[in-house]
Simulated assay, not measured.
Amino acid sequence: MFDRCLQVKDFMESYSGKWMVAGGWAIDLHIGEETREHEDIEVAVFRDEQTDLASLLADWDVYIAQEERRQEWDLNDPIELPIHEIHASRQDGEMLEVLLNERSKGRWVYRRDPNLSFPLSMMNLQSEQGIPYLNPEIVLLYKAKHTRDKDHDDFNYVFPYLNEHQKEWLKQALMHSQRTHPWLEKLLY
């Protein structure tokens, strides 16, 4: 179980910055079982640690993903907002999606709305296998922007595993950023 996440953990051991599994895998790590198939694996890192990331991916083919386009990333050029997604692949078929996250003054900052933040010291958890993963409430906030069927499934699977603090934070974040999101109906009761 979680073989793909364990492979990423082994690879990321040499990364000197803070990293965590994001996306659907983070939801499954929180639950403690794989609830669905995943096409890819996403790793969240901080934008201000790009130099460390560039070193880690030096022998990979690395592209910036921006609005349905891919552009090769010159590892010496810093990536600025609004770009936040990097796709990396190796000739052996290994692939990794890296999501750049923002932080300021000891807090993770939501790139779509800097008024939403979370203490860095509490923004990620760790699985039984020692895999760091982004808190599910933060993952769900990202998924809420363009919600697909699999995102609704992720919400429904993880909802019973969220504590009251996590539900409250997600509820407040959605009320601030997407007041009509369908997940609010379940979060309000």
Rank of each mutant, 00 (worst) to 15 (best):
P114E: 11
L141T: 01
L100I: 10
Q91A: 13
N101H: 15
V139K: 04
L81H: 14
D149W: 06
Q91F: 00
R90G: 03
H152W: 04
D77H: 10
S127H: 03
I131K: 04
R69D: 03
G93C: 06
T147V: 07
R69M: 06
D74C: 06
Q126L: 05
E128W: 00
D92K: 11
K145C: 03
D92M: 10
I83P: 00
S117T: 07
R90M: 10
D149I: 06
L100W: 02
S117M: 07
E102P: 13
Y142Q: 04
L75A: 08
P78D: 06
L100R: 08
H146C: 04
N76R: 10
G93F: 05
L100H: 05
E68L: 11
W73D: 01
V139N: 02
L140I: 01
M123V: 05
R90D: 03
D92W: 06
K145R: 15
E72G: 05
Y133H: 15
Q66P: 00
R107P: 00
H152N: 14
V139G: 01
L141V: 00
D153N: 08
M95S: 07
G130E: 04
G106C: 14
E137H: 01
S117P: 04
V139D: 02
L120C: 10
E94H: 09
D151E: 06
G106F: 11
I131S: 01
S121I: 11
D92L: 07
D151V: 04
S89W: 05
Q66T: 09
S121L: 14
L134E: 04
K145Q: 14
L81N: 12
N101W: 09
E72P: 14
H84E: 02
E102T: 10
V109P: 13
P136N: 11
E85D: 10
Q71W: 03
S89G: 06
N124C: 13
F155P: 07
A88M: 02
P132N: 09
E85T: 15
K150L: 08
P136W: 07
P82V: 00
G106Q: 13
D153S: 05
M95E: 09
D153Y: 03
E128Y: 00
I86F: 05
L100D: 02
L134D: 02
D77G: 03
Q66E: 11
E67N: 12
R112L: 12
L134W: 08
E80K: 14
E128L: 09
L141M: 01
D74P: 03
L120D: 09
W73M: 03
N76E: 12
E102A: 12
Q91L: 10
E85P: 00
R112F: 08
I138S: 01
Q126R: 13
L99N: 07
E97I: 15
P136G: 12
H146F: 11
I86A: 02
T147Y: 01
Q129S: 12
F155L: 14
N76A: 13
V98L: 02
L120V: 10
K105D: 15
D154W: 03
H146T: 12
E128N: 11
Q66N: 09
S89R: 13
I86D: 01
S121C: 07
Q126P: 03
P114H: 11
Q66Y: 11
T147K: 06
K145G: 06
P114T: 08
H146N: 15
E67M: 07
P78Y: 01
R103L: 03
S121T: 14
A144E: 06
V109Q: 14
E97G: 07
L120A: 09
I83G: 00
E67T: 07
I83R: 11
K143M: 13
S127Y: 02
H146S: 14
D113V: 00
